[in-house]
Simulated scan of single mutants.
Amino acid sequence: MAKYINPYTDFGFKKLFGEEANKDLLIDFLNQLLPSHHQIADLNFRNSESLSESSEERKAIFDIHCRSSSGERFIVEMQKAKIKYFKDRSLFYITFPIRDQAQKGEWDFKLEPIYFVAILDFEYDEAEERRKFRRDVALKDQDGDLFFDRLHFKFLQMPLFNKKANELVSKFDKWCYFLKNLESFDKIPAILNEPIFQKAFDTAALASLSAEQRDMYEQSLIHYRDLKNVIDTAVEEAVEGNKAEIAKTMLREDEPLEKVVKYTGLSLNQVQQLRRELDKSG
């Protein structure tokens, strides 16, 4: 039985990073991603639901929306499943803290820095991005020089983080290791035995939840697992469908059954069934 919450659930993520009592956890995590000139000393949570200015426009609901004491604005998203147009959605989201800075009357259009941080429990489709656990994106010109220093995107593809405890080098590594493996820990690993992570583990302990919180977490966990099962099933069916199409092509070319089995990974019975289906269809 798990001892700690799953941080990829809505409840788990907001319990760790979205509560006033635990904002030091969020500050510490974000500071590992930020340059020295944008380090956070303190922050305030803002309404996570941003309404558009007109009824025709869509509203955005963020996991966490906050502002540092020095003015930087942050949207932090835990994305559990692959969705279409995620980059487009990310761009859409940052338009809200941009417009939120608009001032009535005389205004010189100066903007405070905005960061969009996405922790992804999936990999992108693009082959280039599949090789990158972390992507730091900013506006640059044709020579790769930074054009605008106040708009940044941070994407973390958590499935690509595979470091073991003895391979952790930085505080950032430790946070990623914590998030990736939290639900499987039965105690605090020695590498994470320091005050900020001790608090994170205490916050994530299932035993510390009230009966009402435990029920909310269980519902959130069920939703997370159901979503993952649907996605995994769809991927598996898609893979099997591709294998079947490859096998049919090979069978039409009169390749030996043993070769079809070897190159598709299908069982001999599956290949024989496909052979019969092709024979019936002529």
Rank of each mutant, 00 (worst) to 15 (best):
L209F: 07
S210W: 02
E212R: 05
E212P: 03
Q213C: 02
Q213P: 05
R214T: 14
R214M: 13
D215A: 08
D215M: 09
D215V: 06
M216T: 11
M216C: 12
M216V: 08
M216I: 10
Y217F: 14
Y217Q: 11
E218R: 09
E218P: 11
Q219P: 07
Q219C: 13
Q219F: 14
Q219N: 15
Q219D: 14
Q219V: 10
S220D: 08
S220Q: 11
S220P: 06
L221I: 12
L221V: 08
I222R: 13
I222F: 09
H223Q: 10
H223I: 02
Y224T: 04
Y224Q: 10
R225C: 04
R225S: 05
D226Y: 00
D226Q: 02
L227R: 00
L227P: 00
K228W: 01
N229S: 02
N229F: 03
V230Y: 04
V230W: 05
V230R: 01
I231K: 10
D232G: 04
D232L: 09
D232N: 07
T233Q: 08
T233F: 08
T233N: 11
T233H: 07
T233I: 12
T233R: 10
A234D: 13
A234P: 06
A234C: 06
A234E: 14
V235C: 04
V235A: 10
E236H: 09
E236G: 07
E236N: 12
E237D: 10
E237S: 12
E237R: 07
E237K: 14
E237H: 04
E237L: 15
V239E: 13
V239Q: 09
V239K: 14
V239S: 13
V239N: 06
E240N: 09
G241C: 08
G241R: 13
E245L: 12
I246R: 01
I246E: 01
I246A: 07
I246Y: 04
I246K: 04
A247H: 03
A247F: 06
K248Q: 12
K248F: 08
K248V: 14
K248I: 15
T249P: 01
T249H: 09
T249S: 11
R252C: 03
R252F: 02
R252S: 02
R252T: 03
E253G: 06
E253T: 01
D254A: 10
D254G: 01
D254I: 04
E255L: 13
E255Q: 12
E255D: 14
P256H: 02
P256R: 03
P256G: 00
L257D: 05
E258G: 00
E258V: 04
E258N: 07
E258A: 04
E258Q: 03
E258L: 02
E258F: 02
K259G: 05
K259V: 07
V261G: 08
V261L: 07
V261Q: 02
K262N: 12
K262D: 10
